[in-house]
Every structure is written in C-alpha cells, then in structure tokens.
C-alpha cells in the first residue's frame, strides 16, 4: 500500500557540538513506517549545518528570530506555506515554542498542524516555576527560586548553600562554588537570556533523562529513559544508553497523567546517593538525543506527527534496553554558492 506523503517543517537544524534536535527529528521522520515525508527546514542562521544536509532536508527557509514577534513569523510562514503546502510543523527550540503556540490556531486555518503543549502547561513547567510545579504534582524537585538582582543571592545563601546552580530562563546552567562565581554567572546569564535567573539547590548524583510523548488526555504514548554515559563541558550528553528503570517510568507516567501533557517532552532527572529522583527540568519539546528512542523502537517524531494530523496513535509498550547512542562530528564540504543563496535569498 502506498504511504501518504506529508510535508513537514522542522526547526533546530544547528547540529553543532551542543546540537538542536532538528536533525535527529528528521532522521526519525525519514524512517517513519506510516508515511513518507518532504522535509522543509527552518533555520535562523546561515551556518546551521542542517541547511546543507540535502539527503535529509529537501529545502530550507530562513525564519525570523522569536524576538521579531509573531506577526513577522506568521508572515514568513504564510510565504513558505504558499510554496510548500506544509501539513505539519515541529518546532524544536524552547525559545521559539511560545510564538508557535500563539500561532497554533492561525496555522491550523492555513492547513498546518502541530502537537504542542498548551500555554498553561508550558508556563507551569517553566524552570522559573518548577518548585511550585513539584508541590502541586507531588514530584521531588530541588529547591529553586527565580531572582531578578544578583544582590538576592547573598540573602538566599543560607537557604541554598554552595555549590548552587545558576540557570538561565531558556538555556545555560553553571555550578557556582562561591558568591563571586554566583554573581559572575548571574551577570553572564542575565546578559544573554534576560531575567529572571534561577537559583537551584545543587543535587549530587547521576543524571538520567527521559524522552516521551503525551497525548493530551493523560496517556503516555512513548517514554524512553536514558543514562548519560559521556557529558560535554556544556553538560550535554555525547553518549547515552537506554535503561529499564521502573521508577523513572512511573515518575514519567505520573507527570503525563497529572498534567495531561500534550506533545513531546524531556524530563531531566538526578538520582541522588539515597536513590531519590529529583526532577531538575522539564523541556517541553523533543530532545537532541531522540534518535536513541527511534533506534530502540519508539519513533517519537513519527508518533507526534500522527497525533498532530489527528490520527489515533497506540502507546508504545516496549523498547530495547542497553542500546547506546554515540554522537559524532562530521565536516561537510559546501560550495560557496550555497552559502550565498541562503544568506542572500533566505532559501536553499
């Protein structure tokens, strides 16, 4: 039987040392069993490697940064829609999600489907609100507080103790071992990502992550836990292994059913020395290591696309345990004319 062809727009093409999820998502989509795809890449910068990966991406358009506002984004997407007739968009950056969520209805009217968390889910799980989130859903989270001025750190040092984590509201996290470092990181992060900056109690332990998918009705469609095997200096997993941890899966189910989570997610967990799991962060999107989930039998990008298209999706029941992903760097040779096209015309 001939598979339907779906046109899918994907962001996060920055397959760099701290990669966006786009390329992993596209690999999952290309391996989908229930449909064929035409992949339209959305890039912010002309140096995003995915733009030049023509075996994975059929055509790329530059799109405006979220700071340009939703009107500018909508206008650009309308232009792209006229040419490409998109069925689905999968946004993969935290910072752009809000704009896409705001545009969800308008895009649907244009024939473009997405499967994103609701704005209240997005806000509630935000790292700025994580402490309240933990209390509300009875999930262990480390003590955290959003601050707007570096002088607040001094007043809070009794409560938090050093070392403590200093986190940006979108990205970046540093461990501060003393007041000087805490102030320096506060300034560095607030200059880059704005206010507030989040202070979080440091938890010693081993990092585990879960990537999954909720159907919006409280059901877990997919969930694959992974232990980071090798971590870069930015704290990103360079290698990881799928594991069978019932407790992690139970926390994931609890998170999905309690919040009725809609869309993909990544739970960042820390297992302390007394075997308590702390939920450190909830990323409301597919993570860059999602290809491990695809490789062990849960094609999350495919399932998400089917949910976006309004199809019934059966929950995955199993996955292979003990499979590793190992990331690698790769140099492409690119003709100057390609770089010129994306830079001047914003399309390639």
């Amino acid at each position: 039987m001939k598979k339907p062809k779906i046109n899918i727009g994907v962001t996060g093409l920055n397959a760099i040392d701290s990669p966006g999820p786009g390329i992993a998502v596209i690999r999952g989509l290309r391996e989908a069993e229930s449909f064929d795809v035409k992949i339209i890449g959305f890039a912010y910068e002309s140096m995003e490697p995915g733009i030049y990966m023509h075996d994975l991406i059929d055509k790329t358009y530059q799109i405006p940064y979220p700071s340009a506002g939703t009107d500018v984004l909508l206008s650009r997407l309308s232009y792209i829609q006229e040419k490409e007739n998109l069925d689905v968009i999968i946004p993969n950056f935290d910072a752009e999600l809000y704009s896409f969520m705001k545009l969800e209805d308008k895009l649907r009217q244009m024939g473009i489907h997405m499967f994103l968390p609701t704005i209240s889910q997005f806000e509630e799980r935000h790292k700025v609100n994580l402490s309240d989130f933990g209390k509300k859903y009875d999930i262990d989270v480390p003590l955290g507080k959003a601050i707007y001025d570096s002088s607040e750190i001094f007043a809070l040092q009794q409560e938090f103790e050093f070392p403590l984590m200093i986190k940006g509201k979108w990205y970046d996290a540093y461990i501060a071992y003393n007041m000087e470092q805490a102030r320096t990181y506060f300034n560095k992060i607030s200059a880059k990502w704005g206010l507030p900056v989040v202070l979080q109690r440091f938890v010693h332990g081993t990092e585990y992550n879960v990537t999954g998918l909720g159907d919006g009705n409280g059901n877990t469609i997919a969930a694959v836990p992974m232990r980071k095997q090798f971590i870069t200096d930015k704290g990103k997993a360079w290698a990881g292994i799928s594991i069978d941890d019932k407790k992690l899966l139970a926390i994931t189910d609890k998170f999905v059913s309690a919040t009725k989570w809609r869309g993909a997610f990544e739970l960042e967990m820390m297992k302390s020395s007394d075997n308590t799991y702390y939920l450190m962060e909830i990323n409301p999107r597919i993570p860059a290591w999602v290809y491990l989930a695809v490789g062990v039998g849960q094609n999350i990008p495919e399932a998400l696309t089917n949910l976006a298209m309004g199809h019934q999706v059966e929950p995955f029941r199993e996955y292979e345990v003990g499979k590793l992903f190992i990331r690698y760097s790769y140099d492409m040779i690119v003709d100057r004319s390609e770089f010129e096209k994306i830079s001047i015309k914003g399309e390639l």
Partner: peptide, 8 residues
C-alpha cells in the same frame, strides 16, 4: 556486566 536499571 550491564545493569539495565541504572545503565552502569
């Protein structure tokens, strides 16, 4: 040895 519940 591989411990599937911890990944170690």
């Amino acid at each position: 040895l591989f411990n599937p519940s911890t990944g170690e």
